[in-house]
Design a protein around this nucleic acid. Structure first.
Lengths: 192, 192
DNA sequence: GTTAAAAAAATGAATGTTCATTCACTTTTT
DNA sequence: AAAAAGTGAATGAACATTCATTTTTTTAAC
């Protein structure tokens, strides 16, 4: 009850500031005081919304992961043919990483770092279920190679993270042609 | 002169401790005092070998990256046919990530984090030149798709990093079959 | 070879700073 | 006027780095 009365805007500002600062400096190099300043609140206020710094970053991770997967599966038709369905999800994911680059980078940092609690990491994985279901269906139909989900993910989805990073560092520019090529490569590496 | 007299063993112990602790706690959560303790030296001794903490981690990154690429290209014949040559390098890289898992994880963390100086990152990239040369040759011969090096890397090499991470977290076990499949997927995604 | 003085390397204990978190108080909302 | 939300200024712990000494190694004279 008390919690619901608190301004959701403030929580959002804190989460946003956390993403921004952690992206640019890393978790341990972003002081609570800076997060507070960027969110225009007092440091003490953070503790009204989050237990402590670890909780703040865990919740931020879950928030962003949820946003990511919601976007990825938004409008997705689980009954469409496998390739079509996969292409839909893949494009949504690419789109997310292109448009919400900062959020995607934050997730990459969380996933490659001991920054997040194991529990939160597990929690984050669950959100991908629809994609795993699609792969199961594709394997059953003999359309997709009988690899484990991890292999499929490593070959069909994860490369996008690398491309985002390369773009962020100014090494490439992700235009439509490049994305189209990347999808073909992704599909080819998992289709039977 | 003075520098050469200092024990190379101590430097190595410090680098090793850094890898271990940064892997498990992240850069900013590993105090110099712990690195010193693990390397069996005094905190002050670190400053005889490295300018400061940032320098220590930069040098560690370069060290590991050098070791990685040396291993990857060891015994490599640049005149072999493209697929064969690529398979050789790919297998060496997979081998490295399997056998030197901790080092591979350290590199992944450095590459996805604002932990390393941009200069050291650039320095690290140079070491991959032989692979880029091979791709250029492959493209010229029409054996490899005309994608940028970043795309090729994203699809053919980077997935290995994801698989290592999955293994480290206990989600999969990388056996020979799995590696063989992964190579086929890698090659298929870049071959013309 | 032995030895002692000089140089180099190594150290444990400061030093000063930064930071997460708390607290006593104020402002806003109900 | 009571409750909730918010605050700026402590508090105390952790940490990177430095410093005054000590230990080890090197040098070279005998």
């Amino acid at each position: 009850m008390a919690k619901l009365q608190k301004s959701i805007d403030k929580r959002n500002a804190l989460v946003k500031a956390t993403i921004d600062l952690v992206n640019n400096n890393g978790f341990h190099a972003t002081p609570m005081s800076k997060i507070a300043k960027m969110a225009n609140v007092s440091p003490a206020t953070i503790y009204l919304y989050f237990e402590n710094k670890q909780d703040l970053v865990n919740q931020t991770y879950i928030d962003v992961k949820t946003e990511y997967t919601k976007y990825a599966f938004n409008g997705y038709d689980a009954n469409a043919p496998v390739k079509e369905a996969f292409q839909y999800i893949w494009n949504r994911i690419a789109d997310f990483k292109l448009k919400q680059c900062e959020h995607a980078l934050f997730l990459a940092q969380c996933d490659n770092t001991p920054m997040i609690d194991e529990a939160s990491r597990q929690e984050g994985i669950k959100h991908l279920q629809p994609l795993l279901d699609l792969w199961a269906k594709g394997k059953a139909e003999g359309v997709i190679k009988p690899y484990s989900d991890y292999i499929l993910y490593a070959y069909a989805i994860n490369p996008l993270a690398f491309l985002m990073l390369a773009q962020k560092r100014g090494a490439i520019t992700l235009d439509d042609t490049l994305i189209k090529n990347a999808f073909e490569a992704a599909w080819n590496s998992i289709k039977k």
